[in-house]
């Protein structure tokens, strides 16, 4: 469903070239939830943005549903894929109500029956009609992230890209959102990529995980094998050990 082949992304900041992603390749099959883990700055978001077409990329490095896609995409190509961003406080337009936010994609694609669809999309993510005409600043972080998920799903995409959807949230709210994502990906038969710096979150939702470090994909493995400690790379093992909590033994001397 998604094929990434030798994807490289370089940002130019002044005269300095930052190689954010280096030759990353992987494929995600239909219906799969693929995980990407790595520390901050390792290029996870950049990979996701390149797949989404938010960054200029060489045309043949990203293929979706068998077709090569670049950054310029048609409206129907756009509709295939949606995105949930990390920071629920920054991903909703501050001057628009939930109703306006959810109506916008329907208006862009000239879909009829918007009123009912918006109501259903809200119910789908566990929000009621009382939230429909509120502004983002009148919602909690968890509620905002639900709105963002509703916005992503209202166009009925086949692919959902999730960029640290819960790292700005409390554990209890994180549990609700992760459960919601798990339920919706079944109900909508979604293919998805989940990015997180938290190995536990990725392991909870995904079957296969890519580990990224400094722009490169260092290891690709099954969660089962990760659990059994069969990681090949030292970096992956270090990440796993650190995620299990602090231990005196590994502390610096």
């Amino acid at each position: 469903m998604i094929e990434v082949a030798a994807l490289s992304v370089t940002f130019h900041v002044g005269h300095v070239a930052v190689r954010a992603v280096r030759e990353v390749s992987f494929a995600v099959t239909e219906g799969e939830t693929f995980g990407i883990v790595g520390e901050s700055g390792s290029g996870k978001s950049t990979v996701l943005r390149a797949i989404a077409g938010l960054l200029p990329t060489p045309r043949d490095s990203v293929r979706i549903a068998g077709r090569a896609v670049g950054a310029r995409r048609t409206r129907s190509e756009r509709r295939l894929l949606q995105f949930v961003f990390q920071d629920p406080y920054a991903s909703l337009h501050p001057r628009q109500t939930v109703d306006q936010i959810l109506n916008e994609p329907l208006a862009i694609h000239k879909i009829a029956g918007a009123g009912a669809l918006v109501g259903r999309a809200l119910a789908d993510v566990g929000l009621g009609p009382e939230h429909r005409f509120r502004y983002p600043h009148q919602l909690s972080g968890g509620q905002r992230q639900r709105v963002a998920i509703a916005r992503a799903l209202i166009l009925d995409p086949r692919i959902l890209l999730l960029d640290e959807p819960t790292s700005a949230l409390d554990v209890s709210i994180q549990a609700e959102i992760l459960n919601l994502i798990a339920r919706l990906r079944r109900a909508h038969r979604l293919t998805s990529i989940l990015v997180s710096h938290d190995l536990a979150v990725v392991a909870h939702l995904c079957d296969r995980i890519a580990i990224m470090q400094e722009g490169s994909l260092v290891e690709l493995l099954d969660v089962e094998r990760l659990r059994r400690g069969e990681a090949r790379e030292a970096y992956t093992r270090e990440l796993l050990r650190a995620s299990r909590g602090y231990s005196r033994a590994q502390a610096p001397a």
Binding site: V171, S172, N179, R244
Partner: peptide
């Protein structure tokens, strides 16, 4: 107890996380 149960764990996979 609910706080502990709500956190996903690498070693103890759960089908669904407990909400509070």
């Amino acid at each position: 107890r609910a706080l502990i149960a709500a956190a996903p764990s690498i070693d103890r996979p759960k089908a669904e996380l407990t909400t509070i």
